[in-house]
Simulated scan of single mutants.
Amino acid sequence: MNDSSTWPHPFSFDPTYGYDLDSLLAVEPPAQAPHDFVEFWADLHERALEVDVRPQVGKRVHLTDNGLDVRPVSFNSLGGVRLHGWLAVPTDGGVERGLVVGHGYSGRKQPDPQLPVPRAAAIFPVARGLGVPSVLPGIPSSPDRHVLHGIESRDTYVHGGCAADVWCAATALLELVPQTGERLDYVGNSFGGGIGALALPWDARFHSAHLSLPSFGNHPLRVTLPCVGSGAAVRDRYMTNPEILEVLAYFDAANAARHLRIPVQVAPALFDPTVPPPGQFAVFNALAGPKELHPVTVGHFHEHPSAEREHEELLRARTRFLT
């Protein structure tokens, strides 16, 4: 793995934050989670499972070269919202497992061109407010505003709803393709990695997960580190309103990872200007169950010369892990 700190970059800060791999592996989750952290998430999960998701599938929009029938899908989620995304099912009907696939903070305009494992059906939900398919009145769609929506209270913060969207997407997939209950996995990147870490500990339907560049880990440390993107918006708000850490403690992916016991593969970066690596590694380090580390040199910076090669290596590692 290359020394990413030697490569030129346009940022006014060091996106390694002075950490090497050994020091990243020593980053711990916040010293203490809220005393009712588990109760808060268990209640949210219970309410999400009570939602009548009423999934609807549209006409085929694509037939992939590897035999996946791709159609638009919509479903209800917590809070009376109707979300959209895509459903991909093998045309030969040979389904042995299911995938819920998250996305980054830029949302999703289309499903991934191929699935990481064969004989799987997948749902690609677009989280509330993020991207045209799931734009909602009152929820900002830009990442730097979305990440602050409802941050004044744990009961209104948008990330709780986004975790519920994962659970309701799983319910929709299981209703539409019941065979996916044989083995249901989660795949998420960046925003989707962090939301996955928040959602997965409370839902026994999931068997394993892959989280790459997971966000929202160790907020008390994260708000002290300069960055770009949605993290910078949270940091700026913290500078004028430090009380938000009391709310963010409930939505800390590293706090949640302490309760995540299914096998998880994590691909954190050593250099990342958008999601500081110490927060990513805090999620991996806190995991309570079987875990596999697949570090990458750089995240959220495609100009790095090894980015394309490492991405291909990551896809292969993800397939091996999930298979």
Rank of each mutant, 00 (worst) to 15 (best):
195 I>K: 01
136 L>N: 11
200 L>Y: 00
168 C>M: 05
199 A>K: 06
194 G>Y: 01
164 A>L: 01
195 I>S: 05
165 D>G: 10
159 H>K: 14
222 R>N: 02
201 P>A: 12
181 G>M: 10
170 A>T: 02
216 F>C: 05
204 A>W: 06
206 F>M: 08
185 D>P: 02
228 V>Q: 09
174 L>P: 01
185 D>N: 10
145 R>V: 11
146 H>A: 07
193 G>M: 06
233 A>V: 09
188 G>N: 04
235 R>L: 04
149 H>Y: 09
153 S>C: 10
215 S>A: 14
140 P>W: 06
213 L>Y: 13
161 G>H: 05
151 I>Q: 03
136 L>W: 12
208 S>G: 08
148 L>K: 10
143 P>A: 13
232 A>L: 15
160 G>D: 07
220 P>Q: 11
157 Y>T: 04
238 Y>S: 02
216 F>P: 11
230 S>E: 00
181 G>F: 09
211 L>W: 05
166 V>Y: 14
143 P>L: 11
196 G>L: 09
150 G>L: 00
228 V>I: 14
238 Y>P: 00
178 P>Q: 07
161 G>K: 02
169 A>D: 06
200 L>Q: 06
137 P>F: 06
147 V>K: 05
142 S>Q: 14
197 A>V: 04
218 N>M: 12
178 P>C: 12
204 A>D: 13
144 D>H: 14
139 I>Y: 03
203 D>F: 03
174 L>I: 09
236 D>E: 11
138 G>T: 14
213 L>A: 14
135 V>T: 15
155 D>V: 07
165 D>F: 03
140 P>T: 13
194 G>V: 09
145 R>I: 01
166 V>H: 13
172 A>T: 06
140 P>N: 15
207 H>Q: 15
192 G>S: 09
187 V>K: 03
190 S>M: 02
187 V>S: 09
237 R>Y: 12
198 L>I: 04
223 V>I: 12
233 A>N: 05
231 G>I: 07
195 I>C: 05
163 A>H: 01
172 A>Q: 04
153 S>W: 10
202 W>R: 09
182 E>Q: 10
178 P>K: 04
238 Y>V: 09
234 V>N: 07
206 F>C: 00
143 P>H: 15
145 R>C: 03
225 L>V: 07
154 R>T: 05
157 Y>G: 10
189 N>T: 10
209 A>M: 08
181 G>A: 15
157 Y>F: 14
210 H>Y: 15
234 V>A: 13
225 L>Y: 11
137 P>D: 15
171 T>G: 01
219 H>E: 07
171 T>C: 06
147 V>A: 08
195 I>E: 11
138 G>P: 13
188 G>P: 00
140 P>L: 15
216 F>D: 01
190 S>L: 10
179 Q>W: 01
229 G>R: 10
228 V>Y: 02
179 Q>L: 09
163 A>M: 02
180 T>M: 04
140 P>S: 13
157 Y>H: 11
190 S>G: 08
201 P>K: 07
200 L>H: 07
220 P>K: 05
188 G>V: 06
196 G>R: 01
215 S>V: 09
182 E>H: 13
152 E>S: 12
175 E>W: 03
159 H>A: 04
173 L>M: 08
157 Y>I: 08
140 P>Q: 14
136 L>Y: 00
